[in-house]
Amino acid sequence: MTESPMRERLHEVESLLSTLGKSHPNEVQAFMNFMGKAEAGPALSGKQKELVNVALSVAAQCEWCIAFHVKQAAHAGAKRDELIEAGFLAVLMHGGPAMMCMTPLLKALDEFGLPAAVQV
């Protein structure tokens, strides 16, 4: 059975960090420390931080980041509509290329089991 594209991206992230962690441990550890410090502030909730990260991932056009942060946002309680809205904020600020990166965002939402909102 073939792995879904967004789950494959997550495994690629893990593999990259593992490979670089062996060959360049100081650099990887410095990055991980910086990430931990940057995400440690008390003003935003974990869910809010991940919504920001999803928007930035779409704006940066990074499928690996989208997969990682959609999964983290889902674990933090974010709903599909919140994540799509975050994606559209990236489109507002970054334009057409960010609109095209809504494709991997939707794939990640589907693959990680975030159901579509009920239409009223």
Results as ranks from 00 to 15, higher is better:
F112R: 00
L109E: 09
E111N: 05
L89E: 12
N33Y: 00
L10A: 07
N26A: 13
A55M: 04
H24T: 14
A86T: 03
H69T: 08
A67C: 15
L83D: 07
R9P: 00
K37Q: 12
A38C: 04
K107D: 14
V120G: 12
Q61W: 03
A30T: 12
E111H: 07
A90D: 02
E85L: 11
A78T: 01
N26Y: 02
C101S: 14
A43V: 15
P97C: 14
F68T: 08
F88Q: 06
A108V: 01
E39I: 00
H11T: 02
S23M: 10
L10S: 10
F112I: 01
Q119F: 13
S15F: 11
M32H: 07
P42A: 10
E8A: 13
G21I: 05
M99K: 07
L56I: 14
L20S: 00
V52L: 15
A86V: 04
V28H: 03
I66L: 06
G113K: 09
L106D: 02
T19Q: 10
N33Q: 10
H69A: 09
E12V: 04
L51S: 04
C65I: 03
L109H: 03
C101V: 04
N26T: 09
E85R: 00
C65H: 06
S45Q: 12
D110C: 03
I66E: 07
K79V: 06
Q119R: 15
I66G: 09
M102D: 08
M32W: 09
E3M: 14
L51E: 03
T103D: 05
E85W: 01
K22Q: 13
S15M: 03
G87A: 11
R7A: 15
L114M: 02
E50H: 06
I84W: 00
A78C: 05
F34A: 14
I84S: 01
K79F: 01
Q72K: 12
M1S: 14
E27Q: 06
V58Y: 01
V70D: 02
M6C: 06
E50S: 11
L92G: 00
K71I: 02
M93H: 11
E111Q: 08
G77M: 09
A90R: 07
K49A: 02
C62M: 12
E82W: 12
E12A: 14
A74R: 11
T19E: 09
L92W: 01
Q72G: 09
M1T: 12
C62E: 11
E12W: 08
A74L: 08
L105E: 07
T2M: 06
K37Y: 05
G113P: 14
I84D: 02
M6S: 11
R7L: 13
R9H: 08
E8F: 01
N26G: 15
A73G: 12
E50C: 03
N53F: 04
H94P: 00
S23C: 06
G77Q: 11
N33C: 01
L83N: 09
A76C: 06
A60W: 06
I84L: 14
E3G: 01
S45H: 10
A116E: 13
A86C: 05
R80N: 08
D81F: 07
A30P: 06
H69V: 10
A116C: 00
